[in-house]
Structure formats: C-alpha cells, structure tokens
Write a protein that binds this DNA or RNA. Structure first.
Length: 478
RNA sequence: CGGGGCGUAGCGCAGUCUGGCUUAGCGCGCAUGGUUCGGGUCCAUGAGGUCGGAGGUUCGAAUCCUCUCGCCCCGACCA
C-alpha cells in the first residue's frame, strides 16, 4: 500500500493530485493556474502527439503555425464566439513599455486569426479544401484550475479546415471525431462515446459540436476531444469567400477540432489505482523496467547488470524504440525500487535476481494486475511483447466494462435525479429539451447532457414528454 | 466573481487565542554511515527556516494592529 497516495475512496481529487505528484508528471508553476509539465508527463504528451499527428497526416492534413497574440477586435466579429470566450481572455495591453492602441488577446483558440488568414489565402474553389492543423499552447483564464484537466495555459492541437460544401465540412468534422476516437481508444485505452453535443453544450460559434466523452473511475464524465462543424459562421465573420465552379462568390464551410493535454488527465483517471499511475503500454515512455536484484555488489555489477543491459537492448530492438529501462540502484531495497516504478506507472516490471539466474528465468510482473510470471530466458522477449499487448487490451476492456457497469437508464426525470444522487455514473435518457432545460437539469441534479448517442434511437423526452427525443447521456462532468 | 479556509524547512503540520518558557519545533523526505533486503526495515549522525510581504504597537512579535500578495476547498463558468 502506497503511503504517499491518498486512497481513491477517501478523497478522489486528492488521490488524483497525489498520483500526479508521485509519478512526477507535473508540478505547480509560480503563475496562478499554470502547471509545469515534467519530463515524464511531457514524454506521454509527445507519444500522444505522435499518434495523433500521424493520423492527421494520413487524413491529408498539414501543420502550420499561427501567432499567439490575436487582435482583440477579431473576437467581436462572431457574436457567440465573443460571448463565449470574452470572460476567459488574457489580454496584452502593453508592449515595449508603451500602451498598445489595440490590446491583443492571448489565444484561447484560433478560429478568428486563422479565419482572417484563410480569407486572404482562399480565392477559388481550386484552393479548397484547406486542411491545416497547428500544435500550440492556448490560454483561458480559468477560475478553478486543476492539473491537466483545467489549467490556464494548456497544450493542444487545433485543426481548422475550409471546404466548398456543407457536406464536405460535415464529413470532415465526423472524420476527425473518428480519428480522436481511434487514438483515445486504441492508444490511450480510454473508451469513449462519440457523438453530438446538445445545443447548450455547443462550442461558441459552431452549428454542431461533437465530442468524445469518457467516464473516469469516479463515474464522472470527461470531454476528451471535440470536433466542430462551424457552418458558414466564421466564413461570414472573416469573409472567407471564393469563386465557385459557377463563377459566383460563395462562403466557405469550415470545421475545427481539438484535443489537449487534458487527455493525460483522462489517462490518469481512467486507469490508475491506489498504488499510483498506470500508463497504457502504447503511450508509455518506458514500457518495461528491468530490476537486477542482489545484495552482492560484485554479482550485481559483474553478472546481473550486463545481463539486464543485454536484455534491455534486445527488447528495445524488438519493440522498435528506447522503451526499456534498467534500474541499477542495487543499494536501495527491492521494495523501495518496486514502489518507485509502480508509482511511475511502468506497464511491466522484470525482476532479475540470483534466484532467477539459478533457475534460468526472469520474473515478469504486470503493473495493471500485479500478476507475476516466471519465464524461461529464451521466452522472455516474446512473452514481454505479448504481455504489453495484453495489458493494453485488458486496460481498455476494464475501463469499458466499468463504464458499462456504471451506465443506467432513466425513463423519467425523477429516475435520472435519483440515479445521479445515488450511484452516479452515466445515465441514458431520451432528451429533446432546450438549453434552458439543460440549465435547469444542471441546477437541480448537477448533471449535464454529455453526448447524444449516435443512431436513430428515438423516444419520449423525460422533460418535455414529446416524442422523437434523442437518447442522451447525462452525467456530472469535469 | 460569491462563501469558507490557509500561508512557519522540499512536503505535511504544531506553536498564534493568553507576546518572553524556542537558540523556532515535530513527522516524512533529503545527505552520510551501519543494518535490512523478491511489495515502502530499523538505528545513528547531519544539512536545511529573513515564520508570504510591507508598515506599525512594544523593552521584546511567528504570536497583537493596519495594509498587501498568494494559494486551497465549496459554488457559478469552462478543453
């Protein structure tokens, strides 16, 4: 039992912070609401980035970079956008010791400045589509920050595309939602429900907002990625016009989509336990740690270390990267060393001690289950490969089973209230109400509509009683 | 931004009400040595603090007063 981590049952949010601290993922910065992402946390982010970026490239996108500062007036051009973001803008009012004529906002998202540039770049239907992504930081002056989940500054990617037709833009929006779903589920082992947001949860300035909604291990929901169909709202606000195939001037249809360092929070809260972090093998910076065990300095240095290093080299070659670490700190007690690696979330531990040496085996210990396996030397490499695959799959399955076990149906509003009050988790209910209804539900239950489930599952709305309401997930959310 | 709480060693805290009994303590962590060693041993020694900051009251301030900065928790808002 870890002594530096608060058990989940006692205080979930303290547990979350303890896990981050013990795993050295992040630390508080001297600036309110900002965090320092430490090397291990950043390495996880780099792995997520690599997987996402490959998907973006595969689907025809290119990367570019737009400025951090955006003229304040740009936000005024789209009514809903300014209303949505004005409260959380950080503003630069001085430069070079002088007050600026027009303040610059530190970007909270880049639809505006990118829209401005697109209006210059797009002249003809032949210029379309424009499929650009940028990796950057953004700033939103959050009232209540939490490491990874909600910080004033965070890292993300934002894709911005412009298209000839509504259909194409809509198709793009859904395609990228699919990309997010794939990366979240296959790489981060975070199962998500991908679907549309209700009107009250829509991105400011979007016609349709889609989400990948995940359930954390306390039953609360976390929006893990979003994709927006922006219609012609930003095209009109920023005059993104082109000559169409008929020679007429027309507005583009645009989309935008983003996924942030928040997903690291999702990984933590989906998989970790009371011993600390558990990282899915596919995004783990270190996939396996080899621990030579001996009290005898000469055996450790002359026999075990070389053997461990040789094994690590072979494993790295097999896994295609520098994924194996050798723990040479034989002065420390084994239990201390085990705990360190446990808390760092390394998926697999390989114990190589004198007993193993004598038996011609290596002991493999899974981080996710604690299961131990003594494996003959010649089978170590294939077994490690197999175990990493198994761990990834099992982590996903456990998370998905957990979500399903904590998802309940409500036929009436009272049922919904009762479930949210008692066991929590996700509640499936037919909903066809207005944003005002959503506000009321939130005020009365603490839950919000998280995602409209895809498919043509229609029924009677729990609020209005009207038919043709869509099946929707309600939950308390981060 | 409303309601609560807190700033004392890297972290967690006691001391503040009732100023002097502290040369500012304790636990964890850290360093060194020993002991132990396959899921957080035990012991010894040691390093580490302008008590958030600025004024003030007093013979004397971590402690009282004024101002100020910051953080955390609960709400409202959000990737």
């Amino acid at each position: 039992m870890a002594r530096n981590i608060t058990p989940r049952k006692d205080n979930y949010s303290q547990w979350y912070l303890d896990v981050i601290k013990a795993a050295e993922l992040a630390d508080y910065a001297p600036v309110r609401g900002c965090m320092v992402i430490r090397p291990t946390g950043y390495a996880i982010w780099e792995n997520i980035q690599a997987k996402l970026d490959a998907e973006f490239k595969r689907t025809g996108h290119v990367n570019a970079y737009f400025p951090l500062l955006i003229p304040n007036s740009f936000f005024q051009r789209e009514a809903e956008h300014v209303e949505g973001f004005a409260p959380e803008l950080a503003m630069v009012t001085h430069g070079g010791g002088e007050e600026l004529e027009e303040p610059y906002a530190v970007r909270p998202t880049s639809e505006t400045v990118i829209g401005y540039m697109y209006s210059k770049w797009i002249q003809s239907w032949r210029d379309l589509p424009v499929l650009i992504n940028q990796w950057c930081n953004v700033m939103r002056w959050e009232k209540r920050p939490r490491l990874f989940l909600r910080t004033s500054e965070f890292l993300w990617q934002e894709g911005h595309t412009a298209h000839e037709t509504a259909e194409e833009a809509q198709e793009e929006t859904i395609r990228m939602l699919g990309v997010y779903r794939k990366v979240l589920e296959e790489e981060l082992a975070v199962p998500v429900l991908a679907g549309e947001k209700t009107a009250g949860e829509r991105f400011p300035g979007a016609d349709h907002t889609y989400t990948c909604e995940a359930m954390m291990s306390d039953g609360k929901a976390l929006q893990s990625a979003t994709s927006h169909f922006l219609g012609q709202n930003f095209a009109k606000a920023f005059n993104i016009q082109y000559q169409n195939r008929q020679g007429e001037l027309a507005y583009c249809w645009t989309s935008s989509w983003g996924m942030s360092t928040r997903t690291i929070g999702a990984v933590i809260m989906t998989h970790s336990d009371d011993d600390g972090l558990i990282i899915p093998p596919r995004i783990a910076p270190v996939k396996a740690v080899i621990i030579p065990l001996s009290k005898d300095e000469s055996i450790a240095e002359n026999v075990l270390f070389p053997k461990a290093k040789e094994l690590a080299a072979k494993l790295d070659e097999e896994l295609g990267g520098m994924f194996t670490k050798v723990d040479t700190d034989f002065h420390a007690r084994p239990a201390d060393r085990f705990f360190t690696h446990l808390q760092h979330g390394i998926p697999l531990r390989l114990e190589l001690g004198e007993k193993d040496l004598a038996a011609g085996t290596v002991r493999l210990v899974r981080r996710d289950t604690g299961a131990k396996l003594d494996v003959k030397n010649e089978s170590v490499i294939p077994t490690v490969k197999q175990l990493l695959t198994d761990i990834q799959a099992d982590m996903f399955k456990r998370a998905k089973d957990f979500r399903e076990a904590n998802t309940h149906d409500a036929k009436t509003y009272d049922e919904l209230k009762a479930i949210i009050d008692s066991e929590g988790g996700f509640v499936r209910a037919y909903f066809g109400g207005t944003p005002e209804d959503e506000v009321r539900i939130r005020e009365e239950t603490g839950a919000t509509p998280r995602v409209i489930l895809p498919g043509d599952n229609m029924g009677k709305c729990i609020i209005t009683g009207q038919d043709n309401a869509r099946l929707t997930i309600f939950a308390k959310a981060y």
